[in-house]
Design a protein around this nucleic acid. Structure first.
Ligand SMILES: [Zn+2]
Ligand SMILES: [Zn+2]
Ligand SMILES: [Zn+2]
Ligand SMILES: [Zn+2]
Lengths: 138, 138
DNA sequence: GTACACCCTGGAGGATAGTCTAGAGTCAAC
DNA sequence: GTTGACTCTAGACTATCCTCCAGGGTGTAC
């Protein structure tokens, strides 16, 4: 299979595939005499794996580690679980901080709303010193 | 006030302040004969505003827009509200996708767990074709 | 044998929000 | 007039995940 076929098959760009190769995520495939890359099904599977765990929020550097694990035969579950756990707590932290942000934005909107009803030319979002973040909760 | 004082006052680096100036977030202040920037209180307020709305998740390019609004005297609430609303729905979208991610990670962990109890050498995260993402929900 | 789609390499670019550096100048105090 | 802390500029660098480009070669069908 040449690179364009593989790209179409799994929905990546040709450039992305070459990028993965350069960055040691995909093994260097054999070439034709003319230098064209020749891929096998296992490469397609590897790329599918990459997409899959990328969808779980892993970055490419982390995926490199997972790919090594994937090479091992013996009991890879423990390290995989560790990584999944870490990623899960990252995500939970991000969720918490986004929830805070959501709260602050709602607060700001309420403020702004109130001021608008008063037809004040002073918009509290733009003017206030210490606006929607009460500094209270830790 | 010279730049280092301002920086300390509001907790930014000197470099960040100069960066904001280069990127038209902070007006160019007057200089001493020797070329040192001389800031006034209004500049400190502007920087505080920048930090504040940055804390609401606005990026610098968006903050530039807010700063223009801040210059206006007349009824700025409407456009401010629009921007806050937009930002809020961005945040909500991000929240939704992070929640999905969280679900997928939990699912993957459960899978991996199950396989581990069976002491299978085949870790489902590493091997499965169509793993934790059921493609069902839109 | 030539048209045409496809592939090759290396390197630049891009969005974000700054940080860090070198090499030189300035300000205040003593 | 010298020390020491501060400031100036321009430009390179960080991280992430690619995309886009030029300038050239390849593969296959007609
Ligand atoms: Zn497992
Ligand atoms: Zn208010
Ligand atoms: Zn308002
Ligand atoms: Zn399974």
């Amino acid at each position: 299979m040449q690179i364009g076929i593989v790209a179409k098959k799994i929905g990546l760009s040709v450039d992305a595939i070459r990028f993965y190769e350069r960055n040691a995520l995909l093994p260097r495939p054999p070439r034709t005499r003319g230098g064209f890359r020749q891929y096998a099904e296992t490469d397609v599977e590897t790329l599918a794996f990459i997409r899959r765990v990328q969808g779980l929020g892993f970055k490419l550097s982390e995926i490199r580690g997972l790919l090594n694990l994937r090479g091992n035969r013996l009991q890879p579950c423990a390290p995989v679980r560790r990584r999944l756990q870490e990623k899960l707590s990252d995500v939970q932290q991000k969720l918490a901080s986004l929830h805070n942000l959501e709260r602050d934005l709602r607060l700001a909107l309420r403020h702004c709303n109130r001021e608008m009803r008063k037809r004040s030319a002073h918009c509290p979002i733009l003017r206030e010193r210490n606006p929607s973040k009460p500094e209270g909760a830790k």
